[in-house]
Structure formats: structure tokens, C-alpha cells
Simulated assay, not measured.
Amino acid sequence: QVRQERRAKAMEDAALLVQRAWRGKAARVAMKLVRRARAAREKQLDDAARFVQRVWLGHRGRVEAARLARLVEVDALKRRSLFDWAAIQVQRRWRGELGRRRADAERETRARRWKQMWDDRVGRPFWYDKLTGEIRWRKPQEALNLEPKPHCSNCEEQVADVECKDCSEFFCQTCFAAVHGGGKRRHHAFRALNDYYGSRIDYGEGEWPALWPSEVRQDEFAGWMPRSEAAVGDAGVAGSAQEATRSAQELAAAGEAAAAA
């Protein structure tokens, strides 16, 4: 009986040893499988992260490359536009200069075609157009623009722009504002000598200073004349004007002969 008990106990210990060894091996195999699965999962996640990073970096690189390409294209377009703008500016300025030269030459040619002559019947000068044969009692605007412009009576350097009636002097804009800015001179009567384009304003015939409207008499036929020199009455002026009108053809012939001479 004792022997059987020892044998049963030895078999039980052997069974426990086998079970412990088997369970240990099974546990080690399970842990190895878990580690492998965990490593595979981590590798899968790492590969997925790398793939996402590669896709994102590629997308961002393509976007940046497209942006840089657009910047290069815009810069090239700006350069071409700048060159075109510069060329247009140069062409415009040069063509404007040529146009101004041609216009000045044309205006001077038109102004030079007028010739001043004297009518003994009326006792006053008239202007004859050598190209068209036109006769004018009033000095043409083209001839007025050729007359020298007066200088400022104050600084004597700048070309005068304003004439003061009470001072009987010419002023540039700066000197006129300084002299007539206050005091009694602020109420002086004045007028501009030239228009916006620099052409002389026709206030009457004669050299500077020109006559004021109150000092000039204007007739439909005889043109302008100073009131101080209008010794004849209305009938005499009208008769002289009508006589001058009737002799227009004779004056034209005389003008053509003088121009040819």
C-alpha cells in the first residue's frame, strides 16, 4: 500500500511537471505570437504612416512647385508687360514730340502766311492770306501767337500771365499773388494774357499792352479800333467799312502782287 501511494504520488508529480512544462511552452508560444502580431501591427501602422506622409509631402511639393511655376510665369508676364509698357511710353512720348513739332511747324506756317498791309482809303492796316487770298481787318489768332510774350514787371524773369489795369504792369502768377494778395491792390482789375493752351487772348489789335474792352470799339465791318482814334461818327465808319468791303477784290489783287514781289 505504501508502495502504491509512492507510485501514485510520483505519477502525480510527473503529471504536474509535464503540465507545467507544456503550459510554459504554450505560454511562451502564445507570447511569441502576440509579439509577432504586435510587431506586424506596428509595422503596418508605420508603413501606413509613411505612405500618408509620402502622399502628403508629394502633394505639398506639387502644390509648392505649381505655386513657384505660377510666380515665375507671373514674373515673366510682369517683365513682358513692363517692357511693353516702357516701349509704349517711349513710343508715345516720341510720337507726341513729333506731333508737337509738326503742329508747331504747321501753326508757324499758317501764321507766316498772313501779311500785314495798309489800306489808304480806310487809313488802317489789314491782313492778307497769301495762300487763300482772304482779307481780315482783325489780326488773326495765328499772327497774335507769334508776337513775343511780355515778362513779369516784378521779378523780370518769368513770362507774364496776368495784366493789372490799375498798375499798368504785367505779373507772373507767383508775383501777382504776392503783390495783389492783400490791401487795396486786392481790388485791382486784372485779366489773363493767355488761355489754357498758351495762346494769346485777343483783347484788341496792337502791341503790348493791349487795349481793354472799354477802350476798344468793335465794328462788324471795320473790326477793332481804339475809341480815342475813332474821330469819325457811326455813319463815317460804316461808309468807310462799306467802301473797304467793296474794294476787297482790289486789295486781294494788290496783296497777291505784293506777295509775288
Results as ranks from 00 to 15, higher is better:
Val90Cys: 08
Leu16Lys: 14
Ala244Ile: 04
Trp127Gly: 02
Ala177His: 05
Ala15Gln: 11
Ala105Ser: 13
Gly204Pro: 02
Gly58Glu: 06
His188Asp: 01
Trp208Ile: 02
Asp195Asn: 06
Leu146Asn: 08
Lys149Val: 03
Arg80Val: 11
Leu71Met: 14
Leu16Tyr: 07
Glu215Tyr: 05
Asp202Pro: 00
Met117Ala: 05
Ala259Ile: 04
Pro226Asp: 04
Arg227His: 08
Leu251Pro: 01
His59Ile: 07
Trp22Lys: 10
Pro209Phe: 01
Arg200Gly: 03
Arg79Tyr: 13
Asp161Gly: 10
Leu16Gly: 08
Leu98Gly: 00
Ala261Trp: 05
Gln116Ile: 11
Arg50His: 10
Phe176Gly: 03
Arg138Pro: 02
Asp84Ala: 14
Arg95Thr: 10
Gln1Ile: 09
Ser240Leu: 15
Ala69Asp: 07
Pro150Gly: 01
Arg102Ala: 14
Trp56Asp: 10
Asn154Cys: 11
Ala143Met: 12
Ser199Gln: 13
Trp56Ala: 12
Met225Tyr: 04
Arg136Leu: 07
Trp114His: 02
Pro150Glu: 06
Glu156Leu: 11
Ala244Met: 09
Gly61Cys: 03
Arg35Thr: 12
Glu108Arg: 14
Val74Ala: 11
Trp212Ala: 13
Ser240Arg: 15
Gly223Gln: 04
Ala21His: 08
Arg113Gly: 02
Asp129Leu: 03
Arg79Gly: 13
Val74Pro: 03
Arg6Pro: 01
Lys78Cys: 13
Ala39Thr: 09
Ala37Leu: 07
Cys167Tyr: 02
Arg60Ile: 08
Arg70Phe: 07
Ile201Trp: 00
Arg112Gln: 14
Gly24Lys: 10
Ala76Ser: 10
Ala248Arg: 11
Gly58Met: 06
Gly206Ser: 06
Arg23Lys: 14
Glu229Cys: 08
Leu144Ala: 00
Arg185Thr: 05
Trp127Cys: 03
Gly206Tyr: 00
Gly236Leu: 07
Lys9Val: 09
Gly233Asp: 02
Ala259Gln: 08
Asp13Trp: 06
Ala178Gly: 00
Cys167Pro: 00
Gln173Asn: 11
Cys155Gln: 04
Thr132Met: 06
Arg41Pro: 00
Thr174Ser: 09
Phe171His: 02
Thr245Gln: 12
Glu243Met: 14
Gly61Trp: 04
Trp22Pro: 01
Arg70Ile: 02
Tyr197Cys: 08
Phe126Asp: 00
Arg136Ala: 03
Pro209Ser: 02
Glu97Thr: 03
Val232Phe: 07
Val18Leu: 13
Lys149Tyr: 00
His180Leu: 07
Gln218Asn: 11
Glu12Tyr: 05
Asp234Pro: 03
Ala258Val: 04
Glu256Lys: 12
Arg23Tyr: 07
Ala49Pro: 00
Arg136Met: 06
Gly198Asp: 02
Gln158Arg: 10
Ala48Ser: 11
Lys32Leu: 13
Glu147Asp: 10
Gly239Lys: 15
Trp114Ser: 01
Ser228Leu: 04
Ala65Thr: 07
Val29Pro: 06
Gln249Cys: 09
Asp47Thr: 11
Val72Gly: 14
Arg200Val: 12
Asp47Phe: 05
Ala248Lys: 09
Glu215Met: 05
Ser214His: 09
Arg136Asn: 03
Gln19Asp: 14
Glu229Arg: 08
Ala248Met: 10
Trp114Pro: 04
Phe126Pro: 00
Ala87Met: 12
Cys172Tyr: 01
Glu250Tyr: 05
Glu205Ile: 05
Asp119Cys: 11
Lys165Arg: 15
